[in-house]
Each structure stands twice: as structure tokens, then as C-alpha cells.
């Protein structure tokens, strides 16, 4: 006799989703625990770690931010192959503000976040009128060309970059700063996506024609999404700059473009938790595999292909399903 797997939503999920009738502490916990895991995990454990692992956490968080920003763009159907554009612009902005004007990180980081968001949005504005792959092509090309612009014209320190920038007062400050920003972005973006505004955004990627005929200016909304994503990416860049006390051409490097895409695809596109999980798997993994050199990038490339082709939903939706649904085998007659 053949069997088929049947999935049923757990009762509590149904109740929590539609009617909000929670009846016990157990049910409240059921809802709150998943959200609390990253919060507790990030904020409580990080301080206990050694310096080395804090470094790893910081660089993971940077990639996680870039991956979440990538995911935001993806919600509107914009495939970015150039997260390093955001990172690099944020990095150079913060670096220049610090180097030339002597502003402290407490000013450069917010300024670079907003400014980077605006600059990137302006740069990408013309492409928003076109379909998906143009955006992918242009985002891939732009950061690499901008780094050559720096190289050729020798502005902003040329190939040497801007060095000796102001560092954070101590490592713990940095850890807390980036983790709080990461959490705010994560929950903020999830909230945005769940709202009516988010419905419009995802509608654009689903069926832009339908959104246009609903009297909505899709270019304007896409620009807003790019601004959100680019600001987060620029924040990561500005933060990384003060972390390394350096802003330079490596900010536009391909690493910052590839890793976020791989992390988001592995973790699960469109969930924001997914990219976070993906980053927390891939970055430490790549740290562990440091000895392998170029082979790491081979792995990212293969991960990307395997997940896109074979497991397009990613890891997070799988976990989510296990948590929210019961499975059982039923007879197929």
C-alpha cells in the first residue's frame, strides 16, 4: 500500500495566525521562543566568547546584514549581484567623513548609512525601470568599475585606501552595536514585509503589471526598497570600516557580493531569518575552512547552484515547517 506524507498546521499556529486566541503560557511561549532565540543568542552569548570568536561573530553579522539587505531587494524582485556596491559606498563614505573631516564614528556611521542609501539608490534609479536581469548585471558591474575608478583617478587614497581611521572604543561596544542593528533590521524588515506595504512590494516582484494597474508607481516603491536595502548595506560598510580602521578598494570586492547571496539562498530567500541563519552557517564554516583557500569560494558557488536548483526554499522554511506543522503518513487509496 502506498503512503503519502500529510502535513497539518498545528492548532496553535492556526489560532495564533488568524484569531489571536491564546489560552495559556505554553502557547505564548510557543510564539515567543522562535523570535527570542536570535535575540538571546546574540546578545547574551557574544560577551562570553573569546576575542577571536567575537571577531568571527562581527564578520558574520556584517555578512548577515548584507544578506538581509539582499533579501529585502529580492522581495521586490530585484536580484543584486553587487552587495559590495552598498558595502563599498558605505565604507568610503564613513572613511572619508572620518579621514577628511575628522568626524567620530558616532556621526560617520549614521551619515554613511543614510548617505550611502541615497547614493546607491540614485545610482540604481535608471535600472529600476528595466526587468530583473538588468539589475543583476548592473549591480555586478558597478562595484568592480567603481573600484577601478578609485584606482585610476587615485581619489580617496587610491590603491592604498584611507588608513588610520578611528576605531571603536572597545570590541564589546562593536559587538553590541552590530548585533542590535542586526536584530532591529531583522525584525523591522519582517514587520515591513508582513504589512500591507510589504504586500505591495512582493506584489511588484510577483506581477508588476497588476500592481501598476492598481495605480501604484512601482518605480517609486522599488526605489524605496533599494534605499532600505542599500542603507543596511552601507551601514555594514561603515561599521566594517571603523572596525578595520581602513576604507579601500577591497570594500568593492566580489566577496561582499557572493557571500550574502549564498547565505540568503542557503538559508531561505524571502524570510530574513533565512539569510541570518545562512550567514551564521557559511561564515564560521568558511573561517574553519580557511586552510582550503580558493576552494571555499568553490563551495559557495556550488552551494548556490545546489540550493537554487534542488532546494530552492532553503533551510529556514524547512525548520519553520517542522515547528508549525505535524506530519503523518497516510494511506493513499
Amino acid at each position: 500500500m502506498k503512503k503519502r506524507k500529510e502535513r497539518i498546521d498545528r492548532g496553535i499556529k492556526v489560532r495564533a495566525q488568524d484569531i489571536f486566541a491564546l489560552t495559556s503560557y505554553r502557547e505564548m511561549l510557543y510564539l515567543l521562543v522562535p523570535g527570542a532565540i536570535p535575540v538571546v543568542g546574540l546578545l547574551c552569548f557574544a560577551p562570553m566568547l573569546s576575542n577571536y570568536w567575537r571577531e568571527v561573530i562581527i564578520s558574520t553579522a556584517i555578512y548577515a546584514l548584507l544578506a538581509i539587505s539582499w533579501d529585502m531587494l529580492m522581495c521586490a524582485g530585484l536580484l543584486s549581484l553587487g552587495q559590495s556596491l552598498f558595502f563599498g559606498i558605505g565604507s568610503y563614505l564613513a572613511g572619508s567623513l572620518n579621514h577628511y573631516l575628522g568626524l567620530p564614528p558616532i556621526l560617520t556611521i549614521p551619515l554613511a548609512t543614510i548617505g550611502g542609501g541615497l547614493i546607491c539608490t540614485l545610482l540604481l534609479l535608471p535600472v529600476l525601470r528595466l526587468r530583473g536581469i538588468y539589475f543583476a548585471m548592473v549591480t555586478l558591474v558597478l562595484p568592480l568599475m567603481l573600484s577601478r575608478l578609485v584606482e585610476a583617478t587615485r581619489i580617496l587614497g587610491g590603491t592604498e585606501g584611507l588608513t588610520g581611521l578611528t576605531p571603536f572604543p572597545n570590541q564589546l561596544t562593536a559587538v553590541f552595536l552590530i548585533q542590535i542593528v542586526l536584530l532591529v533590521t531583522l525584525f523591522g524588515f519582517r514587520r515591513i514585509k508582513g504589512s500591507d506595504y510589504g504586500l505591495v512590494i512582493t506584489g511588484i516582484s510577483d506581477n508588476d503589471r497588476s500592481v501598476m494597474s492598481a495605480g501604484i508607481n512601482i518605480q517609486w516603491y522599488k526605489a524605496q526598497v533599494v534605499f532600505l536595502g542599500a542603507s543596511v548595506g552601507s551601514f555594514a560598510g561603515a561599521f566594517g570600516t571603523h572596525m578595520d580602521m581602513f576604507a579601500g578598494m577591497p570594500g568593492f570586492a566580489l566577496d561582499y557580493s557572493i557571500m550574502p547571496v549564498a547565505a540568503a539562498v542557503v538559508g531561505g530567500v524571502g524570510t530574513f531569518f533565512g539569510p541570518l541563519i545562512g550567514a551564521f552557517i557559511l561564515v564560521p564554516l568558511s573561517e574553519a575552512l580557511r586552510a582550503l583557500g580558493a576552494l571555499r569560494i568553490v563551495f559557495y558557488g556550488l552551494f548556490l547552484v545546489i540550493f537554487v536548483v534542488g532546494i530552492p526554499e532553503g533551510i529556514f522554511p524547512y525548520i519553520q515547517r517542522k515547528y508549525q506543522q505535524v506530519e503523518r503518513w497516510v494511506d493513499v487509496t
Binding site: I133, V261, L292, A294, I297, G301
Partner: peptide, 22 residues
Amino acid sequence: MPLSEVMATFGLGLAIMELFRY
């Protein structure tokens, strides 16, 4: 799914090129 096509071919390209480097 053009976006998936782009990501998959991009990943494949990376893997091939970096394999030569390795």
C-alpha cells in the same frame, strides 16, 4: 525563473573559476 537562472549560472561560474585557482 530568470533570477534563479542568473544565480545558478553565476554560482557555477564561480565554482569553475575558483577551482582552477585551487
